[in-house]
Amino acid sequence: MSQRARFEAQLNAIWYGQQPVPWVLRWLAVIYAWILACRRWLYRTGIKRASRLPVPVLVIGNITVGGTGKTPLTAWLATELARRGWRPGIVSRGYGGSETSTMMLPLDADPAQFGDEPVWLMRAAKCPVAIGRRRADAGRLLIDRIHCDVILCDDGLQHWSLARDIEVLVVDGERRFGNELLLPAGPLREPPSRAERVDFVVVNGSAAAPAEIAMTVDAHRLVAINDLTLAKSIADFRGQPVHAVAGIGNPERFFRMLEQKGMQVIRHPFPDHHHFRRSDFEFGTSLPIVMTEKDAVKCACLGLPDAYMVPIDVDLPIQFADQLNRQLRQFQESAA
């Protein structure tokens, strides 16, 4: 385990476990809260203004640090909106990539340049994706070049410079908001009360409250990362030891899913958006390597033998997509 991964594990033990919060983290959280309040005040008073795009904007995000399932949800929403006649485009920060300008992803986009999540989104949702520090500029690029008529902003809940019509908050059903403290004393980017001001709350895993929308993620097959035509049933790996690799926000969720499928999991957690090298996979044994789809987009060029990715299937109530479609159509008609 890398030094960064160990540090993240220590923080998670404080945020989601029973370990006491050090006083220095509490003081830093007070400073963070003050900065957050000042930033919110600048937008509320109009000193800073949010950019409004000429098409409806749907923002998907969370208020906690780490993985909650917002990126798979973004891909699901883009697919469902396309089925209902929309031309969706996705904008992202492109975190983890080297590109600093506003750009639309080419079909052969390199995750080292554009980031792993944008590349995965483009492939999974089969729709255009643009990255940029300013999501509004990325959105305009998609509107001007591809004529997208709805923009989805992945991980954009705190990107207040982009005006939005609908906000979707994604919550980890198992960990929820942890100790409910702001960073770095807790995992929260914003206070828990922020959940009351969004349009929809989607809960990934565990039971959803009556006002929330339940989202489940499952897996049924493994695909060789060096040959996408080679797929195996996940049941074929039942009882088999595997090296499980995850460089995502919540690696433990992935590891537990594999264990629930009957695999004997040897855990190899890496920091989120980790840039993998061949040496990262020198485990000393020649067992199969199993990783997430997001990690696989960065590892396909490494020539790893007996390495597989786990495509996930996202399930949500179809009524959720229908309701979003109706609301977006209303925004579209009122702007016409």
Score class of each variant (00 low, 15 high):
residue 5 A to I: 07
residue 15 W to Q: 05
residue 19 Q to H: 13
residue 20 P to S: 10
residue 24 V to Q: 11
residue 24 V to H: 11
residue 28 L to E: 04
residue 33 A to W: 13
residue 36 L to F: 07
residue 40 R to Q: 15
residue 42 L to G: 13
residue 42 L to F: 14
residue 44 R to G: 00
residue 45 T to H: 09
residue 45 T to I: 10
residue 59 V to S: 03
residue 62 N to V: 09
residue 62 N to A: 08
residue 67 G to W: 04
residue 67 G to N: 06
residue 68 T to D: 06
residue 69 G to H: 06
residue 71 T to D: 00
residue 72 P to E: 00
residue 77 L to G: 02
residue 77 L to R: 05
residue 79 T to I: 03
residue 79 T to V: 00
residue 81 L to S: 00
residue 81 L to T: 00
residue 84 R to T: 01
residue 86 W to A: 02
residue 88 P to K: 02
residue 91 V to H: 01
residue 92 S to M: 06
residue 95 Y to R: 03
residue 97 G to A: 04
residue 103 M to P: 08
residue 104 M to H: 10
residue 106 P to C: 11
residue 108 D to T: 05
residue 111 P to K: 02
residue 115 G to C: 10
residue 117 E to Q: 08
residue 119 V to W: 05
residue 119 V to F: 10
residue 121 L to E: 04
residue 121 L to V: 11
residue 124 A to T: 03
residue 126 K to W: 00
residue 127 C to E: 03
residue 127 C to F: 08
residue 127 C to Q: 06
residue 128 P to E: 06
residue 129 V to Y: 11
residue 129 V to Q: 12
residue 129 V to G: 03
residue 131 I to Q: 02
residue 145 R to Q: 15
residue 146 I to H: 14
residue 146 I to A: 14
residue 147 H to V: 09
residue 148 C to W: 08
residue 149 D to G: 05
residue 149 D to Y: 06
residue 149 D to A: 04
residue 153 C to V: 07
residue 155 D to H: 04
residue 155 D to R: 01
residue 158 Q to E: 15
residue 160 W to I: 12
residue 161 S to W: 14
residue 161 S to P: 14
residue 162 L to E: 11
residue 163 A to T: 02
residue 164 R to W: 07
residue 164 R to F: 05
residue 165 D to W: 00
residue 172 D to A: 03
residue 173 G to W: 02
residue 173 G to C: 04
residue 174 E to Q: 12
residue 187 P to M: 05
residue 191 P to I: 02
residue 192 P to H: 03
residue 192 P to F: 03
residue 194 R to F: 09
residue 194 R to W: 12
residue 194 R to N: 12
residue 196 E to K: 13
residue 199 D to Y: 01
residue 206 S to P: 08
residue 211 A to N: 08
residue 212 E to T: 10
residue 212 E to W: 02
residue 213 I to S: 08
residue 222 L to F: 12
residue 223 V to Q: 08
residue 224 A to N: 14
residue 226 N to H: 12
residue 228 L to T: 14
residue 230 L to C: 11
residue 231 A to Q: 07
residue 231 A to E: 08
residue 231 A to S: 09
residue 234 I to K: 10
residue 235 A to N: 09
residue 243 H to S: 10
residue 247 G to L: 00
residue 251 P to K: 01
residue 251 P to S: 05
residue 252 E to G: 10
residue 256 R to A: 07
residue 265 V to W: 00
residue 268 H to P: 02
residue 271 P to Q: 06
residue 272 D to Q: 11
residue 274 H to A: 03
residue 279 S to D: 15
residue 280 D to T: 10
residue 281 F to H: 15
residue 282 E to R: 15
residue 284 G to I: 13
residue 290 V to I: 15
residue 290 V to W: 11
residue 291 M to W: 09
residue 294 K to W: 07
residue 296 A to H: 07
residue 297 V to A: 10
residue 300 A to D: 10
residue 300 A to V: 07
residue 304 L to D: 09
residue 310 V to F: 01
residue 311 P to E: 06
residue 317 P to L: 05
residue 318 I to N: 15
residue 319 Q to L: 12
residue 320 F to C: 03
residue 321 A to M: 12
residue 324 L to N: 03
residue 325 N to L: 04
residue 327 Q to W: 07
residue 328 L to N: 01
residue 332 Q to A: 15
residue 333 E to C: 01
residue 334 S to P: 00
